[in-house]
Design a protein around this nucleic acid. Structure first.
Length: 493
RNA sequence: GGUCCGAUGGCCGAGUGGCUAGGCUCUGCUCUGCAAAAGCAGCUACAGCGGUUCGAAUCCGCUUCGGACCUCCA
């Protein structure tokens, strides 16, 4: 097994990855709250963890990957004082909350599929775990870290912090938090502004409601992640991921709840946080009005976009940056990524057609290239370095394809394995545009082969105008003809 | 206001005490009927000012600028 190093948000250090129960790995990632369409910033986080998941599996771990759907409890506006986000949409549109949930869950799944982001092993929902959440609240109360007020239950941060550290993950100190907390107009039932809701009483206007020992109500936002991660991964598990913006308060509260319920001092061994996608240096967010949906990106139907970009181009663009760094969106960067990906794909295609010699070329070291690829990923999933290494190999492949150098049969096999492993299995970059119907595909490809033959005849007779006419007309249809010593080939974009 | 992070060549974006990141763009060359593709070469940067060091873009300090979090946010 390769030694893998992960930047742990909790310790702020790069640490050797040692799972609690190798080869099994438990990984939990905070999923979306399904009250609106996901935007590209959301996609970036799920993509980052998709690659992490893929790589862990690639190097032999058996990963149980849990990514939740938040379908209740996430409130609008002020913490613990606003309306439920999903309930609000349901009220405004006069539909059932579960219709809202279904609609945006479907949208989320569609988007994940488009970007070739793998499904998690388990995708639990908050509403599916109300009973577990209630019993978790009871445990926290028994341990003395929560109190009931008027049908609602709150977590007592101050009480908790007497026994365990609070704020370690986000680097906050209780006293500083106290000083910086806004007044809540004296309307709050909370004993302390830092406290957060575990269970909220539902008044008659509330659409989402469940019975509990404290009356009719609904669970607080942070609770579901604590409960579902514990249920499916255990009281202590390996990796917890999510966007940087969830560090505080969400993840901090999660830790407090886990410890508060189970008294396990270290519920999560490695915390991983993905950084934000930015537009003109600012975080992409709905409130900024600078977010766009994957559909807008693909069609190019948005004022920030010069034109549309394919999902794999976007995927590649995002992987050219490291997950822990902010990544700035721009048309230029997308276009650069598009060209780069084409170059990579062309090389992989050329690799498939290479004829090997019986003896290896001693000037070329495939093993060294492979080692570089693994080393890149083992260093905190450094996809930009991995991609740079793959481009190094592109030169070798193209040189061989052009007949400038010769590779051994075994070397070609190793390269094929390397590229299918890292490009498809790890980076998830599949080729696009091959979804056309089988029958028409055969027909048009036969027709194209014929045209290429006719053009070869024309070239033979030095009838350049006919040859160029075929090439130019096809080019207008999006088909590119490439001439080489071995003959001509065509490709469709 | 508090906490934290960042500032890299025309653009994007890695790296990090001494070794070419890579991609895109641009220029030139090779190949080629031309073109495309490909290959080769060039453009050789680390915000500013001090300090540590044989040596710093990389460590330390200060300054300037930007961002994130402290409300909901992936």
């Amino acid at each position: 097994m390769h030694p893998l190093y992960i930047q742990n948000s909790l310790s702020r250090k790069k640490e050797l990855f040692e799972p609690l129960n190798a080869p099994h790995v438990g990984m939990y990632v905070c999923g979306p709250t399904v009250y609106s369409n996901v935007h590209l910033g959301n996609v970036r986080t799920f993509l980052s963890f998709d690659v992490i998941y893929r790589y862990l599996e690639f190097i032999g771990y058996k990963v149980r990957y849990v990514r939740n759907i938040t379908d209740v409890g996430h409130l609008v506006g002020d913490a613990d004082e606003g309306e439920d986000k999903i309930g609000k949409i349901a009220r405004l549109q006069k539909i059932e909350p579960m219709e809202v949930v279904q609609k945006y869950t479907n949208d989320f799944h569609d988007v994940m599929r488009v970007f070739n982001i793998l499904s998690p092993s388990i995708e639990p929902t908050a509403t599916g775990h109300i009973i577990e959440q209630i019993s978790s609240i009871e445990k926290i109360m028994e341990n003395g870290y929560a109190y009931e007020v008027n049908g609602s239950v709150y977590f007592s941060v101050r009480k908790f912090s007497e026994d365990y550290p609070y704020g370690e993950l986000s680097g906050r100190k209780i006293d500083e938090l106290m000083n910086n907390t806004r007044d809540l107009d004296g309307q709050s039932e909370k004993q302390d502004p830092l406290d957060f809701a575990l269970w909220k009483k539902a008044d008659d206007s509330h659409l989402m409601r469940w019975p509990s020992p404290w009356g009719i109500g609904f669970p607080g936002w942070h609770l579901e992640c604590s409960v579902m991660s514990t249920k499916y991964l255990g009281e202590e598990f390996d990796i917890h991921g999510g966007g940087m913006d969830l560090k505080f308060p969400h993840h901090e509260c999660e830790i407090a709840q886990n410890i508060g319920a189970n008294k396990t001092p270290n519920p999560v061994k490695y915390w991983i946080h993905g950084n934000m996608l930015t537009v003109n240096g600012r975080k992409m967010a709905k409130s900024e009005g600078n977010g766009f949906t994957p559909e807008e990106l693909i069609t190019g139907n948005h004022k920030l976009l010069e034109r549309g970009y394919s999902p794999m181009t976007v995927r590649f663009f995002m992987l050219m940056g490291h997950y822990a760094s902010t990544l700035d969106f721009s048309n230029d960067a997308l276009q650069a990524a598009e060209k780069g990906l084409t170059k990579l794909n062309n090389a992989v295609e050329a690799l498939g057609k290479l004829q090997g010699a019986s003896e290896d070329n001693n000037d070329i070291d495939i093993k060294a290239l492979s080692d570089k690829c693994f080393a890149a990923m083992n260093d905190d999933f450094n996809t930009p370095i991995l991609i740079a290494s793959l481009f190094d190999g592109v030169k070798t492949i193209n040189s061989a394809a052009d007949g400038r150098i010769e590779l051994g049969e075994g070397q070609i096999e190793d390269l094929k394995k390397l590229y299918s492993g890292f490009m498809i299995d790890v980076l998830g970059l599949v080729s696009e545009g091959s979804e056309r119907a089988e029958g028409s595909e055969d027909l048009s490809s036969n027709l194209l082969d014929l045209l290429v033959e006719l053009r070869a005849d024309a070239k033979e007779k030095k009838d350049w105008s006919s040859a160029d006419r075929i090439r130019n007309t096809l080019s207008e249809m999006g088909i590119t003809i490439k001439d080489s010593k071995e003959g001509s080939s065509w490709s469709h974009e």
